[in-house]
Nucleic acid binder design. Structure first.
Lengths: 352, 352
DNA sequence: GTGAAAGCGCTAACAC
DNA sequence: GTGTTAGCGCTTTCAC
């Protein structure tokens, strides 16, 4: 843990720094005699040599730095993704620069610029908007980018995400199987792929399972949050059109919806069934335990990292971007149950 | 977003690179005529100049890189800390290198070494053991370190943590106020400060509030996890010594304990009250809603970052390390209630 | 197979 | 006030 440098190792091994460099570098080790390699490696070990990554990066124009951009690390969706990516990247000799944009576009732009100044080799981005000028700029600058969780319009970027369409389809199928015929979708924001895709999938699934247009309504939330989930649910309730089930854009929206339902005197699952998305930690311990769609988040991060590294090794000559959709599971718990005989009947017990 | 370099800016502004450097550097701007500064700054802006941090770091031996070391970013305790630190650091021009050690000491050592090779200026460490050779090595190497969440023996490192002692005291006081006279502490691991300090605080508080030694037992969990919380609780139950309340080392332990209690036929809070620690997201929505101690985690991270930056600016000449204990609140919810008349009576309703 | 030398982009000591 | 120069630690041509 000191600042021994290559020259020190070279001196100790009685070779030229250039030779020491070659001996220590796997790719060029072939150019050096086995005996010398051995001497150099020993010396490095003995002195506790740690190469100076800054200098190497300056010279090779490859930093082995990867920026991971998330909107809010305290949202439980992101830590597993970051963790998955981080493990893969550090195992491969990369270092992770994490940045939390706080859902602020200006901030995000600044951070990304700053990371570019740091010489990052590429980005894993979990904040993509559906139409995102920032991504376009990055692409034009030739910066390797992999999107995760969300995709973006144009099909220009490689990404790894959950199969939103399948998740929503499973949810609707499950509800229909329980006898629900009138279902509301509280959609996430429509400027991100997950919000759009899940809403689209909801409409498609409703059609597939024979639910009429009027019975498959969509109400859009302004953000993936409990607050906006609650608001959207309240608006639906105010409209007084009957429904017996809710497919929420994600778990936070589901929690907000649950609050609104409970305030309005509806019991879940007796009066209304609710399905979430993401299977956040502990939603299985809530009352009622939330039925939700589970995504392999950590694997998502890991695959995004793999994809990025592949792209980095490809050095420019790139094929069409790889897009990976990860399989999802419906985790059935207590928040979904058979449809009540008469829809929209308020539970007695909740009104005491 | 290109690779314009200082030389390009200098040429555009018709000055020498050295002058351009001075004009762009706030500290040395005084040495340059206002008119020149203006020309250079304009040129930089126009060309979209982003300084190469690697080169600067190589030259100045200051990278403005900070390593944040956490055991497991998916543990909800850490994201707010990271977020708080990240915001403060990026605002000050630092970049965060995040590393997740997966609770693996060997891995941690390797990561830290690798970050050192990256030239990080210092570390914010949330993984400190009470006796931690890694920290000692870092100190000997003269690497600035701030501990957060946990402290370490020796009083050698600055840290920012929650006031564990006060938190536990509040918990015990609350329980005693509810009539509990026989309380068990399910302590966290004793090789980390939080585990030790909370256990010590528990004994002290019990004494303060007049609970006898035999009625204030401590059972140690091997880790801060639901699984070990459950195991520890089961062991206490197997011992068949009466108790009416549990002070858990943290929320995860509390959840595990709740499971064990429920399996054994005890109802919470009717038969046994349970208090957690940390106020993880959504524990207020569980059934029963968990009474727990809330820490200002984000502020903790922010202060740790401030502390580290102060240390970095101090360049060696350091006073005694600053140690900050953040105030905590007891959040009273449904998992604590008045002590039952007869302790250890199993709830009828739970045994059906 | 190894040594010599140049240079990645920047800043700081030294001239003038 | 500005130009000149050297060098941070490393890799990589180019010699031999």
């Amino acid at each position: 843990m000191a600042k021994v440098k290559l020259a020190d190792v070279a001196r100790a091994a009685e070779v030229h720094p250039g030779t020491a460099s070659r001996a220590l570098n796997p790719d060029q080790r072939g150019q050096v005699s086995a005996e010398t390699v051995d001497r150099v490696v020993r010396a490095a070990q003995r002195l506790g040599y740690v190469p100076n990554a800054q200098a190497r990066a300056l010279r090779t124009a490859r930093s082995h730095l990867v920026g991971i951009v998330v909107p809010d690390i305290t949202n439980p969706l992101f830590p597993p993704i970051v963790r998955g990516a981080e493990h893969v990247l550090t195992s491969a000799g990369y270092t992770v620069l994490l940045t939390d944009t706080d859902n602020d576009r200006e901030r995000e732009r600044r951070q990304i610029e700053s990371l570019l100044g740091r010489g990052v080799d590429g980005f894993i981005i979990a904040t993509a908007l559906w139409d995102d000028p920032l991504l376009t700029d990055l692409a034009e600058a030739g910066v390797p980018v992999v999107l995760t969780n969300r995709s973006a319009s144009g099909g220009r970027w490689p990404y790894v995400a959950g199969d939103d369409q399948a998740g929503v389809r499973l949810s609707v199928q499950h509800l229909v199987g329980l006898g629900h015929r009138s279902i509301v979708h509280l959609a996430g924001p429509q400027n991100v792929s997950t919000g759009r895709d899940r809403a689209r999938a909801f409409r498609a699934a409703a059609k597939e399972f024979g639910i009429g247009n009027g019975d498959a309504r969509v109400s859009v939330c302004l953000s993936y949050s409990e607050a906006h989930g609650r608001t959207a649910m309240e608006k639906v309730l105010a409209a007084r059109t009957p429904f017996t089930a809710v497919v929420a854009g994600n778990d936070l929206i589901a929690l907000g919806a649950l609050d609104a339902l409970s305030d309005a005197g509806y019991a879940c699952p007796e009066d209304v069934s609710v399905v979430g998305f993401n299977d956040m930690p502990f939603v299985g311990r809530l009352q009622p335990a939330l039925t939700t769609v589970r995504l392999p988040l950590q694997r998502m991060g890991a695959l995004a990292a793999d994809l990025l590294m592949t792209e980095l090794d490809a050095e420019g000559r790139q094929d069409a971007p790889t897009r990976t959709l990860l399989g999802v599971d419906l985790v059935v718990r207590g928040s979904t149950a058979a449809a009540p005989k008469r829809s929209r009947s308020r539970s007695r017990s909740r009104r005491t």
